Amino acid sequence: MYAYIKGTFVSVRGDNIVVENNGIGYKIYMPMLLQGRIGHIGDEVCVYTYHYVREDVIALYGFPEPEDQDMFELLLTVSGVGPKSAIGVVEVLRPSELAMAVLQGDIKKICTVKGLGKKSAERIVLELKDKLKGFDMSSVEDLGDSSAVISGPAQSELEDCISALVVLGYPASEANKAARSAYEDGLSVDELIRRSLRLLAK
């Protein structure tokens, strides 16, 4: 229902913030580590939101960036992962970190999320990695920014970035175009993923 809410950052109440817009105060669930990324009380802020509705629960979950919101929604597609676990992952891991953990099968990295057990972490890796099934890098390598001629070790980094973006739910053609546009010599895979995500969020 709500993609984002713009307004005045009024208060913090534990894991909830209040943003006022046109005289209405919106109570938004946002863990403390995420709160520090949106600004200070009194600032005009933009909070990206997910409206969660169940028979006994109606809640707004808030995120500093649209890619955090996208990752939250992606995690909800994993069997057994509810909103509390999903936002716990968003609080601890940036999208680039989650994507690389999935690609590398790094269960321990995902288990650093408080309250997330090994079985849930394994399901996240298994189900998100499934998005790469049938994905052929050669089918997209000639698309995107033709000015970005990339070869050698850098090609491997670019492919890792594109695979990570596909894991995060982006279409292969869009992932390829964003990665090639974001590429610069010397960037780590993590930095390249972050730059690509910013381009995809525009």
Score class of each variant (00 low, 15 high):
55 E>W: 03
73 E>D: 07
138 S>A: 12
21 N>G: 01
54 R>L: 14
148 A>I: 10
78 V>M: 00
134 G>H: 09
57 V>Q: 12
63 F>P: 05
5 I>M: 13
85 S>C: 01
92 V>M: 14
5 I>Q: 10
11 S>D: 12
142 D>K: 14
179 A>Q: 06
150 I>F: 10
192 L>S: 00
40 H>R: 15
95 P>S: 09
164 A>M: 01
96 S>W: 09
125 V>N: 01
193 I>L: 03
79 S>W: 01
63 F>E: 05
122 E>A: 04
195 R>L: 04
22 N>D: 14
80 G>E: 02
127 E>F: 00
195 R>Q: 03
165 L>K: 00
29 Y>A: 13
149 V>M: 12
173 S>C: 00
55 E>Q: 13
97 E>Y: 01
8 T>A: 05
183 Y>P: 02
92 V>R: 15
71 M>Q: 13
152 G>E: 08
193 I>Y: 01
73 E>N: 13
85 S>N: 13
120 S>L: 09
44 E>I: 11
186 G>W: 09
87 I>N: 07
164 A>E: 00
113 V>K: 05
107 I>K: 14
119 K>Q: 12
58 I>T: 14
30 M>K: 03
3 A>S: 12
136 D>P: 06
4 Y>C: 09
78 V>N: 02
122 E>H: 00
35 Q>S: 06
173 S>G: 02
67 E>M: 13
94 R>L: 06
118 K>F: 06
95 P>Y: 04
108 K>S: 14
110 I>G: 08
47 V>H: 11
13 R>L: 04
5 I>V: 15
162 I>F: 01
5 I>T: 10
60 L>W: 11
193 I>P: 01
152 G>M: 07
181 S>E: 15
157 E>L: 13
198 R>G: 03
44 E>Y: 12
105 G>A: 07
194 R>D: 05
109 K>H: 03
58 I>D: 11
202 K>V: 10
25 G>C: 00
164 A>K: 00
186 G>A: 07
73 E>Y: 03
8 T>D: 11
174 E>Q: 15
182 A>T: 00
125 V>C: 03
158 L>F: 02
89 V>F: 11
47 V>I: 15
41 I>D: 13
53 V>Y: 10
64 P>F: 08
43 D>A: 05
147 S>I: 04
35 Q>H: 05
95 P>H: 07
72 F>Y: 13
118 K>D: 09
121 A>D: 06
131 K>A: 12
163 S>R: 15
94 R>S: 11
117 G>R: 01
102 V>I: 04
153 P>M: 11
141 E>T: 06
97 E>L: 04
151 S>E: 13
5 I>C: 09
199 L>Y: 05
134 G>V: 08
7 G>D: 10
144 G>L: 10
78 V>R: 02
2 Y>N: 04
157 E>P: 01
54 R>I: 09
162 I>W: 01
176 N>T: 15
2 Y>W: 13
121 A>L: 05
169 G>P: 04
74 L>C: 01
104 Q>G: 02
124 I>F: 02
